[in-house]
Amino acid sequence: MNLTLHVWRQKGPRERGRFVTYRATDVSADMSFLEMLDVVNEGLLLKGEEPIAFDHDCREGICGACGMVINGRPHGPKARTTTCQLHLRSFRDGQELWLEPWRSRAFPVVKDLIVDRGAFDRVIQAGGYISAAIGSAPDANAVPIRKENADLAMDAAACIGCGACVAACPNGSAMLFTAAKISHLGLLAQGQPERYERAAAMVETMDAEGFGSCTNHNECEAACPKGISVAFIARLNADFVRARLTEGRRLEQVGEGGV
């Protein structure tokens, strides 16, 4: 099959980008989408042109490195599928495709279709962890966890941090990403001690990174390759409200040498 690609080319973060049109000819429907780009890139290299830069690594939908907006949909037209797992059989012969990077102030373009998602790491740094020093853990079965909670936590923890939720959100919001981590940890017994501080701190960082706010469009869930539910956003909202409005019961300041 043949495809026409309009690809966003941008040399660096501060350069102006533009669409450049390429043709992928005689590609097989069994190819993955990225393999098709590999073929295009090999052709460019042989012509002495710079190949299209795109992030990818595991190519099996788990590392979260890949991702681009393909014809107006993050990760392309197929639900619950990362760009690397997309195959050309999802497209028609002769189809025209527009390939664009994630668009978000918090994800500046590094080159072509590559963006910098460091903001996600910083949101995690703000509190997306459980402070359990290595070596200090009690027996794994010391605290039973309701299976339903463990399963729900796993649903949230399935997030691969690809950024499609931000790319899909009309507001450029990172609520689904943040909510998934807060829910994952907040549903587990081990995550309780830091639960509310975590929610408050992660949301503050999320806001500071320049993501937009959530207006419940549900576009994030639709674009999420792991199908993470927006119900976790409601859970985050509840935790955040509780964190900011009702926590902090110790009124007096802890003085020097306190705690």
Binding site: I130, A140, A150, M154, Q190, G191
Partner: peptide, 12 residues
Amino acid sequence: DQCVALGVPFAR
């Protein structure tokens, strides 16, 4: 033990 303490949602 350590992984559970760090919040790894193992199957239960």
